[in-house]
């Protein structure tokens, strides 16, 4: 019983950083901005959150600082691509590399350092339900925050007026401009939101999941988050599914390794990435779904005609 609870809890935990990063990127992409720098923004978020928490002991302050740092990284990207009209793919790749370098530089003195206190426990239900009560209790509060984020993003995109405008901008910036919406400003806001969420995803890794600092500790999760958004055909629910699939296989292969399954560990570590991509490719074959949900202007610069 405990085993089941801990496997599920670990799965949810392992998927959480992907949820933050991917939902943030989803919002940015829905506005038509393709920011490939998620990995870099997560790394910067992870290191600043780690330093903040180590010096203040305040988890939530660390998370907030990581969000700000991610947003600042995204601001760099937004300025280059939206104001200066640089190519989004090139700028995004540069941002990813820049983030890796900057985080390694800042974190030089912290490599291998761990955090002692990981006190925060999850929800306590007033009644005792087998499985559910211990599970909910063992989850980190940031997991709950990621659920709130999922609900919030879904509501925002598909129920609110502002979300409708955002989707319109991503579908046809020229039309949105023609009916009078500030396309560039909306894209800035969406990009900053994406950056902040990537930063928080990084913070979760260095504060809760690991919790320590290692150079390049995001280990490709930023890229997986990007892939998740595309293969989830820009739908938040499928992003959640993909993230937990990734988390689940990560945890299962850990258990398998510790149980002494005789298989190359390199291959086992590869599994979550491979399986997530394969499953998502298979379920996203529906062309109609892609056409209906993909932001048409994704990655294309927009000049508000003079």
């Amino acid at each position: 019983m405990d085993m089941v609870v801990s496997v599920i809890a670990a799965t949810l935990g392992a998927g959480t950083p992907l949820i933050f990063a991917a939902l943030g990127e989803l919002v940015a992409e829905k506005s038509g901005v393709l920011n490939l720098g998620v990995e870099g923004m997560m790394l910067v978020g992870a290191i600043v959150a780690f330093i903040t928490m180590r010096s203040t002991g305040d988890l939530w302050l660390g998370v907030a600082v990581a969000g700000v740092a991610g947003a600042l990284m995204a601001l760099l990207f937004a300025f280059a691509t939206l104001t200066l009209q640089a190519n989004q793919v090139a700028a995004g790749l540069a941002l990813a590399i820049f983030g890796a370098g900057v985080s390694a530089f800042i974190g030089k003195g912290f490599v291998g350092v761990t955090l002692e206190n990981r006190a925060d426990a999850g929800l306590s239900l007033p009644i005792d339900i087998p499985l559910l009560s211990p599970l909910l209790h063992s989850l980190h509060p940031l997991v709950y925050v990621s659920w709130l984020l999922f609900a919030g993003v879904s509501w925002f995109l598909f129920r609110s007026r502002a979300g409708l405008v955002l989707r319109a901008v991503g579908e046809s910036p020229a039309s949105a401009h023609a009916v009078g919406y500030p396309v560039i400003r909306i894209r800035y806001l969406a990009t900053l939101f994406g950056g902040a969420m990537a930063g928080i995803g990084g913070a979760y890794l260095s504060l809760v999941y690991a919790p320590l600092w290692l150079e390049g500790m995001v280990a490709g999760r930023g890229w997986i988050a990007l892939a998740l958004v595309v293969f989830a055909t820009w739908r938040p629910a499928r992003v959640m599914l993909g993230a937990y699939l990734f988390g689940g296989i990560t945890i299962v292969q850990y258990f398998a390794q510790s149980a002494g399954v005789a298989f190359a560990t390199q291959f086992m570590s590869m599994l979550p990435y491979l399986a997530t991509i394969v499953v998502l490719v298979v379920i996203s074959r529906d062309v109609a779904m892609i056409r209906l949900n993909a932001p048409v202007s994704l990655g294309k610069p927009f000049h508000p005609g003079v």
Binding site: L164, R167, A168, E171, S172, S175, R291, L292, V296
Partner: peptide, 8 residues
């Protein structure tokens, strides 16, 4: 060329 949003 219409300024409508096709997926809405």
């Amino acid at each position: 060329h219409f300024s409508l949003f096709e997926t809405l």
